[in-house]
């Protein structure tokens, strides 16, 4: 039998390797790594439709992630989705008239909130609301419209182009 010392060392290495792997999995491949270290502040925004936005999705400005979506709720009074955004305190110079849009990364990618800076002198702070919003682009709606157009088109081929042209103008 090998000496106890060698057994202890190799077991210790094994356990350390296990915990290092766990650390890697939890920090490197999961999305909580920007669980926002240090201070942060919360702002909210109201959307007609959030599409498939999920808590934990990125909030980004100019493509740089500056925060996360904290929670998504539905307000029965105003019939809108209320999205709470948690933004790192390092980014505390976001004008109050900035615009928040729900965007999709790639054709089938996940959704995130993109903020475009406005021109106001005052900056967003804890509890503020972003007034200018742009809803999620829902692919299904577009496809439904397209199908509706085709359905009408097959019914009456001569009129097919007109409604289609109208809808594209919208």
């Amino acid at each position: 039998m090998r000496s106890t010392r060698a057994v202890e060392i190799s077991t210790g290495l094994f356990v350390l390797l296990g915990f290092a792997s766990l650390f890697f999995l939890v920090t490197q491949i999961t999305n909580r790594e920007l669980a926002i270290s240090g201070g942060s502040y919360q702002v909210n925004a109201q959307f007609e439709n959030v599409g498939s936005l999920k808590p934990g999705a990125a909030v980004s400005m100019a493509g740089v992630t500056i925060g996360r979506v904290d929670s998504i709720g539905y307000d029965q009074q105003i019939y809108k989705a209320v999205v709470k955004l948690r933004i790192s305190s390092a980014y505390n110079r976001i004008p109050t008239d900035s615009d928040a849009a729900i965007m999709t990364s790639g054709l089938l990618g996940g959704q995130y909130i993109g903020i475009t800076a406005g021109g106001a002198e005052e900056f967003l702070k804890e509890g503020d609301r972003i007034e200018l919003v742009q809803d999620a682009f829902v692919l299904e709606n577009l496809i439904n419209q397209l199908f509706a157009t085709f359905a009408r088109g097959s019914g009456d081929a001569s009129k097919a182009n007109e409604p289609a042209a109208e809808e594209t103008k919208q």
Partner: peptide
């Protein structure tokens, strides 16, 4: 590769594996 992995794998998934 890494950012898509990060945005769609949650800590829950790791818990499930463990």
């Amino acid at each position: 590769f890494w950012s898509q992995m990060r945005s769609s794998v949650g800590v829950d998934d790791v818990y499930e594996g463990i």
